[in-house]
Design a protein around this nucleic acid. Structure first.
Lengths: 136, 136
DNA sequence: CCCAAATCGGACTGATTCGTTCCGATTGCC
DNA sequence: GGCAATCGGAACGAATCAGTCCGATTTGGG
């Protein structure tokens, strides 16, 4: 029931990125400096976020990253899913894995769907804009 | 963002236990049979749940486990915390660990408290009684 | 009163995942 | 055309997790 620290770092780095002008090129080095995340880890993270479609990357001198969407339309759920994979608290809520081998008619499974939805909703309700912008 | 399978098993086993008479002695072997959880793993889990105070244990012949509270007053949050430790999505929401080394004035932390509370609430809202009892 | 069966409790091992680090590939500038 | 800067993927070490086993303790019968 804990978030991986990679996901935690990703949230911090993206919120830092959202505080920059929308069309600026941010290098991994710059964001690592601003946030305090170790550089190699930051590089890995930026790459993964770009692969997930949250960032656009450009190589070469003067390259870097740029948010591919507006901060208000990027949620915590998006970030977490980009880094950790689909949000599925148990194996049985993940599609295509209904063979948990336990009770054939599992009375618990329907409840997990509800809980999973609630958790996902809590994460989806917080946008990157609100993280970057402001005091609580 | 995923629950450990130990926690998943624990929920299944406790919901099975809740379907038995309140004062019956349940052995780890019995519950393992009913749920399909491997016996050694079930033993380990029951011990941990007893240590957390959710179960009362009795040794010797005819011993076993018994719920220490009414099913309606045991929530998913209780079970998850018993198996996985405190529900804290990030390190900074856990008390006594405010030295994350990142930004001194972290703009993200207050939001994590909110999200953490929402997740915890979602888990606390489902009681063991509703898990054991009924169809959705 | 002693013995034996049954059950809990904790220690050990193997595996998977996580976190980190490093080096090669690609691009733009001089 | 060479050089510097930056992304991209591959490899390594550490920690946690899942699973297994054996010893400690208690009850019940002989």
């Amino acid at each position: 029931m804990r978030l991986s620290s990679l996901a935690d770092y990703a949230v911090v780095m993206l919120s830092a990125a959202a505080r920059h002008p929308r069309d600026a090129r941010l290098s991994a080095t710059l964001l690592a400096d601003e946030t305090g995340v170790p550089l190699p880890t930051a590089q890995k993270l930026m790459g993964r976020l770009a692969g997930a479609g949250l960032l656009e990357s450009a190589r070469g001198t003067g390259g870097g990253f740029r948010l591919s969407r507006e901060p208000c339309s990027i949620s915590l759920a998006d970030i977490v899913e980009a880094v950790e994979g689909p949000i599925a608290m148990t194996a049985c809520v993940e599609q295509g894995k209904h063979d948990c081998g336990l009770e054939t008619a599992c009375k618990v499974r329907p409840h997990w769907s509800v809980v999973n939805g609630a958790v996902k909703g809590a994460l989806a309700g917080v946008s990157l804009a609100s993280l970057a912008g402001a005091e609580l």
